[in-house]
Write a protein that binds this DNA or RNA. Structure first.
Length: 257
DNA sequence: ATGGTTGCAACGCAA
């Protein structure tokens, strides 16, 4: 596939955000869009809404929590919905191949707080993810890993890094796990294309965080080494976050030559 | 200020 545009968006309920997703698709015309937190069982996924406008869809959902989906222009192959080595009812992984590009959509656990059991689950999940990514790198050349990572990689990705030091989303353990991922052979598209730009992809619903720009960059698009040289643009679209009834996340887009 | 908001679903849980 040459000349393609791919995006990720944690929509925090596809049922609520469906009109915004359709509007955004129509305006941006990506070749692929990875969604997280669809919060829909597969039986409830609004498949025809997307096929009617010329997209194909694949999804791995559950009710109330989690749920991932990928919307693409071209045909979808080699679907995987689980990490190796862990039993997990939570639907957080969706890997597919489209036009020779491996697309791995992730909704990495939030972790709640570093003292929580959910934080240990997050770290274990990240260890399994690393094993999975190694496998994928052995099987595919062109890989894009994207989604809600729930990790801010560097101080520049946090509105107040001093305050967030050691806290969930920005702890040393999580940042190390992110760095390990890059060391496997991936680049962070946004940071590769915008080395010193401070921009966020998520703002808490509370405390007027969006208006005050108290955000974090936790939604990412990683590209394998054979793809990163072809990445010509990566940006975060804050527009939908300013809409009525927004998701707390903004979509992130990368374009490849 | 240990608060605040949102979504789901029906009470508190997760984010």
């Amino acid at each position: 596939m040459s000349g393609f545009k791919i995006a990720t968006w944690n929509v925090n309920s596809l049922r609520v955000r469906l009109p915004q997703v359709l509007e955004w698709l129509n305006k941006e015309q990506p070749d692929a869009l990875a969604l997280q937190e669809t919060k829909l069982q597969d039986i409830d996924f609004p498949e025809s809404v997307f096929t009617d406008i010329g997209y194909r869809v694949v999804y791995s959902g559950q009710r109330t929590y989690n749920g991932v989906a990928i919307i693409t222009r071209d045909s979808i192959n080699e679907k995987i919905t689980d990490l190796p080595g862990i039993e997990d009812i939570q639907r957080r992984v969706l890997a597919v191949t489209v036009n020779g590009v491996r697309i791995i959509n992730l909704y990495i656990p939030n972790g709640e707080s570093v003292t929580s059991d959910k934080f240990q689950y997050k770290l274990q999940w990240l260890r399994s993810l690393e094993i999975f990514l190694k496998q994928e790198l052995g099987a595919h050349q062109k890989i894009i890993v994207l989604g809600d990572f729930n990790i801010a990689p560097q101080p520049i990705d946090v509105h107040n890094p001093t305050e967030w030091e050691g806290k969930v989303l920005f702890s040393d353990q999580e940042r190390k796990a992110f760095a390990n991922m890059l060391e496997l052979g991936f680049a962070d598209c946004f940071r590769a294309l915008n080395p010193v730009l401070q921009a966020y992809s998520w703002w808490d619903y509370r405390v007027n965080a969006f208006k005050r720009n108290l955000g974090m960059r936790i939604d990412h698009i990683l590209a394998s080494q054979s793809l990163i040289a072809q990445c010509e643009l990566c940006h975060i679209d804050k527009t939908p976050r300013s809409h009525e009834r927004p998701s707390d996340h903004a979509p992130v887009t990368a374009a490849f030559i």
